[in-house]
Design a binder for these strands. Structure first.
Lengths: 241, 241
DNA sequence: CTCCACACGTGAATC
DNA sequence: TGATTCACGTGTGGA
């Protein structure tokens, strides 16, 4: 049945060395091998040793030594995997009483869910980034009604929206849709603009360029700069818009 | 060394049954046991059978049968776990050549990352939910300047912001900060309001109740309802605010 | 008793 | 070659 026994106690320090080599996400709890820390197969009767142990204990031949090292290494590998499994189990709610396969199934679900949420949000370009960005693109260039998608990402400030509104008025465009999110002092505003008066026959590209230029100036404008006009403030920043 | 051999071919249908019982995220690729589909230990010399097979093949005693069933079950368990592992490997970039422990490490990293992003966003209550919500809470009740945090989550519509602005004006509060995000036709707006004129000595709680009432009406107001006033439209919805 | 999930030691393969 | 990874069959303890 068993081809080899070896003295388990002689490798304790090797075991702990193996634990110390594990990456940072380890934890002492490595699925606690069955009942005691030692395999019950090897030590079925307390501390008494199997008859064939004496020979191995005194001096083991090459084959026995190789097998011993091999089974040690395999034990370390199992512990490495089970430690990760335990870490995952701690991250998944209500997974304490699950078997390994079910746990991994939950992990798959979780990752899929979170990934889907992340792309849903990322698709809308809604998270403010750390760098200032101005993106202007138009849709339906050949249609009678033309829309321009203008996105600005910059530091948040109280009168940013007032500046934007003033800019749009000056450019004679109106926002038919506005998505905004501020996060950690940064803000990203995405507007869908269309021309205010249909009679004007301004070139689309030059209008886009104008928008881009004005938005870029707003994005990089400094709060301490006293140059900005505050004409709109009395009317709009009463309500901070 | 080995305690039992059994005829591998006799369990093929049980194998495929085990595969069919797996959940929906399975795939034919179950880590492709080493080289061939059969363990090379059992079939070391092509199709020749181990000498002890004949007895088992004719009729197996209870112990041999139990062992056979047990090892089959264990094989199914391994396949179940490995199938999930393969699914995870497909979800993690550049994990084709990783061993199981490293793969699980990457999964842990991935889940941590995605979770952190999710709470970063969720902390700001920025994702619109599917149910209408109006939350009104005040901070610093004992300070001279009082702020009210008002949150509204409802279906998006073009003149929602105009309605909100009108409501704030009617309540004589102004928004000192506004976070907004629209996602899939739903919108969540979070405002920090403060009282417009410092001379008014309105009771804070009644003001909060008023805000809550007005916001709730706006959140539940129907677009087809002709009751809403459009007084602000000419002034503000020129720019769609 | 059976069933199930786990840890174990081992043979083989890969590097 | 030694080190490491994997699948396998088995022993065992808990429902």
């Amino acid at each position: 049945m068993f081809s080899c026994f070896y003295k388990e106690e002689s490798m304790k320090q090797v075991e702990s060395f193996g634990m110390m080599m594990m990456p940072q996400d380890d934890d002492g709890f490595t699925t606690t091998s069955t009942t005691s820390g030692l395999p019950s197969l090897v030590h079925p009767h307390g501390s008494s040793l199997h008859p064939c142990f004496e020979e191995v204990y005194e001096e083991e031949d090459g084959t026995a030594s190789a097998l011993r090292i091999h089974s040690q290494a395999e034990k370390r590998r199992r512990e490495r995997i089970n430690a990760r499994l335990s870490t995952l189990r701690r991250m998944i709610p209500d997974s304490n009483k699950m078997d390994k396969a079910s746990l991994l199934g939950k992990v798959i679900e979780q990752v899929k869910d979170l990934k889907r949420k992340a792309v849903d949000i990322g698709k809308l370009q809604t998270i403010p980034s750390e760098t200032n960005e101005v993106i202007v693109e138009s849709k339906g260039d050949d249609k009678p009604i033309m829309y321009i998608k203008a996105s600005i990402c910059c530091d948040d400030r109280p009168d940013l929206l007032a500046d934007l509104i003033q800019a749009f008025q000056g450019l004679r465009v109106r926002a038919v849709k506005a998505d905004m999110i501020s996060l950690g002092g940064r803000v990203r505003n995405v507007f869908v603009l269309c021309k205010k008066d249909s009679q004007g026959n301004v070139c689309m590209n030059s209008l886009k360029d104008s928008i881009k230029e004005v938005l870029a100036r707003i994005a990089s404008s400094d709060v301490v700069s006293g140059k900005r006009q505050r004409l709109m403030q009395s009317q709009y920043t009463n309500i901070s818009f």
